[in-house]
Nucleic acid binder design. Structure first.
Lengths: 149, 149
DNA sequence: TGCAAATATATGTACATACATTTAATGTGC
DNA sequence: GCACATTAAATGTATGTACATATATTTGCA
């Protein structure tokens, strides 16, 4: 559906305004698709993202600082998201022996298994971008990089 | 900066995964730019979006349902965002005379003046997409429409 | 050595999101 | 006309975001 119809706004001031609104709307749309998938597994989207970073480090631990550095949203509160994951036994948290200010966070076997299940589902949907060709996906990335120039 | 460097991830599984991550990251980036602008005026981004919808209706009133229908994020809680705007005297809320279940929400003169100030700032920045040409903005919109096909 | 600055994380608060439930008003079928 | 479903909005609760502040540890240097 065209963005004009999605938000019931027949015209836009210019292509820039239209692109911005489309960007925000479409990103929300994709994230909602993903959230719906995660919900069946008792995970929220930020919790999933943290788990994925931890898997990237595995079997090495990550600190909260490393999580923040790699998170898509730098200003969110990694501490509290890790709290939730710890309650669900998907991660462990231990004081870092070499620097007692820091905390070593590790994904558990349960966490790894959960991610493994989700991988297959995400792969099927091409990460929610199944309507784009490979070339279009690359083109989209280039335009997005340009926005942040 | 390329997305690989932004989130310190040297490679992606494929162009689809890269595009998704870039989409989420860039949208967050643009919204943060905008939030910073609104902050100087005591507004949050969702509050601004509601005000803009109300201006579109002005001088007719809007109901909460209409706001939800037009909001970019359909699942957010329009009632409580209107609460905040009412406290700031940027909107008024009166029971709808023809349907006493509904509430007529209107932007005030103060609200209109505030939006007018913000218009100029947003125009200067081409809504945060100042690095895109007109053609690129249109191209981006087309790719985004395709994602939601 | 001692002590201020820097670092790593946690906590507090206001706002927003996501979703379920509640309250009030309206509409509909019998 | 009245029970019952539907509709519009508000409220409750858990989670997350944004930003300021607090606590504990480590570092650096006078």
């Amino acid at each position: 559906m065209k963005i004009e119809d999605e938000i019931k706004q027949p015209t836009f001031k210019d292509n820039h305004q239209k692109a911005l609104i489309n960007l925000v709307f479409t990103t929300g749309w994709v994230q909602q698709q993903q959230s719906a998938l995660f919900k069946g597994y008792g995970l929220t989207l930020p919790q999933f993202n943290i788990l994925r970073i931890l898997r990237g480090q595995h079997p090495k631990p990550a600190t909260v600082n490393l999580l923040i550095e790699r998170m898509l949203d730098k200003t969110s509160n990694a501490s509290r998201i890790v709290d939730k994951l710890e309650v669900k036994k998907l991660v462990t948290r231990t004081v870092c022996p070499s620097n007692r200010r820091a905390v070593d966070i590790r994904i558990t076997e349960t966490g790894l298994e959960l991610l493994h299940q989700l991988d297959a589902e995400l792969e099927n949907r091409r990460n929610g971008l199944q309507h784009l060709t490979d070339e279009e996906a690359a083109q989209l990335s280039n335009l997005l990089d340009k926005i942040r120039d």
